[in-house]
Design a protein around this nucleic acid. Structure first.
Length: 448
RNA sequence: CGGGGCGUAGCGCAGUCUGGUAGCGCAUCUGGUUUGGGACCAGAGGGUCGCAAGUUCGAAUCUUGCCGCCCCGACCA
């Protein structure tokens, strides 16, 4: 993509409203634009990242055996009356009426709808288990939206729902999601730590929040360093195997958010050197809730001995739009974003330091064609802006690799490759730049 | 929802207390000089002062109502 054709409204000055790094950088880098309290338009650059995150989430869900579908954003109030949540949900739910005065709502979540869909098509225990998911926009009329996309009112969420015949098998579904989440976040360059969450009236031990550690995280978290250092399950893991040993490993050490924190247990169970007290961002939440919806909504199947058995359900959410904020919180510096290659809006920023100069133009065009031909995503700065402005803009939008082509380097037939993550710069013969960068991008996109 | 604050050019702000015909920096446009980390000189364009009603000879400024946004708290993916 040529920058001269792109829409990238970067801001030199920091917007007054933005409090935290990710919000500030997303506004400054022209990724989002606020259209209302907690409501954002996704500008081209931000939209590309959103799509990449979504795709990683999708790939890992598919790998775990979940099946994608899509449910509407607008739901009927009657559906929610079946579960009793229409009155229970409160003002957080955006309620609307259509022209016939029917009561509708903009979905804050989809348990009721998926239960209705499931019960319409499944009759027998032989049809189980099932895991269905969708990636859809939700709306929760938060009292106080803040931190940009980290806590918007409208947000993109992946939610999976599992249906099993009994609790033991529901646990197997839960475990699949647990592993899928570890992998999903790792692929985005995030270290996520599962932390026991409040299971409320359901009870049991089957609820975990996945927390990403980041200095500017919204909540305080406590855990054992051994969890931070633990290796993410590899991509050859078989989701049909018994995953319990993996779950046991990741739940074997202390980890709690501030609301579940037990200072005494923390000090007793965790050696002093291993105590991590940090800030975190919740990026995922998995939850087993048994018959909470299947019972009132009559989602039942015929069991092996006849008779109707309510299905055991769980739900598993990932805050897709929120992840942009989380990734920036974890990967940025004072100059801007530092995108991991897997979610970067473009892999490479090609900077023509003197657009209009014959040699610079020719070298850039050649590199652009070569890299694009290799499948590398290139944002080519072909504008007539001054060098300083171009450098600052590239650092701000944070593409993983920058290729700088200027008259000075071309005198010795060289261009500069800069790695945004560590700031390393290297002068490389122009005719080798394409191969070298393409190889680096390919290598970074490999994941275990 | 309680408490606090803001709304003036694309962005950041001054002007409001004490009413007199709207300003600064950045950005934008034109010309010129420049060009490897956010240039310089000269010139130009751009504002129903959030909306509405009121007071007044006269309102960005005073009064009332409404709308929008932000911050702190309780709540949340």
């Amino acid at each position: 993509m040529r920058l001269s054709r792109y829409y990238l409204p970067v801001l030199k000055e920091t917007p007054a409203d933005a409090q935290i790094a990710s919000h500030r950088l997303m506004l400054r880098a022209g990724m989002i634009r606020q259209e209302g309290a907690g409501i954002y338009a996704w500008l081209p650059l931000g939209f590309r990242v959103l799509k990449k995150i979504e795709q990683i989430v999708r790939e890992e869900q598919d790998r775990a055996g979940a099946v994608e579908m899509l449910m509407p954003t607008i739901q009927s109030a009657d559906l929610w009356r079946e579960s009793g949540r229409y009155d229970a949900y409160g003002k957080e739910m955006l309620r609307i009426t259509d022209r016939a005065d029917r009561e509708m709502l903009y979905g804050p979540t989809n348990e009721e709808m998926i239960t209705e869909i499931f019960r319409a098509g499944v009759r027998s225990y032989k049809d189980l288990p099932k895991m269905l998911y969708h990636i859809q926009w939700k709306f929760r009329d938060e009292i106080r939206p803040r931190f940009g996309v980290m806590r918007g009112r409208e947000f993109l969420m992946k939610d999976t729902y599992s249906f099993d015949i009994d609790e033991a098998r529901a646990r197997a579904s839960y475990n699949k999601m647990f592993v899928a989440y570890l992998r999903t976040f790792a692929r985005m360059g995030l270290k996520s730590i599962p932390m026991r969450a409040d299971t409320g009236p359901i009870g049991g031990d089957l609820s975990h929040e996945f927390i990403v550690l980041a200095e500017t995280g919204e909540s305080e978290v406590f855990c054992d360093r051994r969890l931070v250092d633990m290796d993410t399950p590899k991509k050859d893991i078989d989701f049909d195997d018994d995953l319990q040993p993996v779950i046991d490993q990741f739940t074997s050490h202390y980890a709690a958010t501030d609301e579940m924190h037990d200072a005494a247990a923390f000090e007793k169970d965790v050696p002093e050197d291993n105590r991590v007290s940090a800030r975190g961002i919740e990026v995922g939440h998995i939850f087993f809730f048994g018959e909470k919806y299947s019972n009132p909504m009559k989602a039942v199947v015929a069991g092996p001995e006849g008779g109707e058995i309510p299905v055991q359900m769980g739900s598993y959410g990932v805050g897709v739009s929120r992840l942009l904020g989380a990734i920036i919180e974890a990967h940025h510096d004072d100059d801007g974003c530092k995108w991991p290659v897997s979610v970067a809006p473009y892999h490479v920023g090609l900077v023509n330091l003197r657009a209009g100069d014959e040699a610079c133009d020719a070298a850039c065009e050649k590199l652009y064609a070569e890299l694009t031909g290799e499948g590398v995503e290139v944002l080519y700065d072909d504008t007539s802006a001054r060098p300083g402005e171009k450098f600052a803009r590239m650092d701000l939008i944070g593409l993983p690799y920058q290729i700088v082509v200027g008259p000075r380097g071309l005198e010795s037939s060289e261009a500069e490759i800069k790695t945004r993550a560590d700031g390393a710069k290297e002068n490389v013969p122009v005719d080798q730049v394409g191969t070298k960068v393409a190889a680096a991008v390919r290598a970074a996109l490999q994941y275990a």
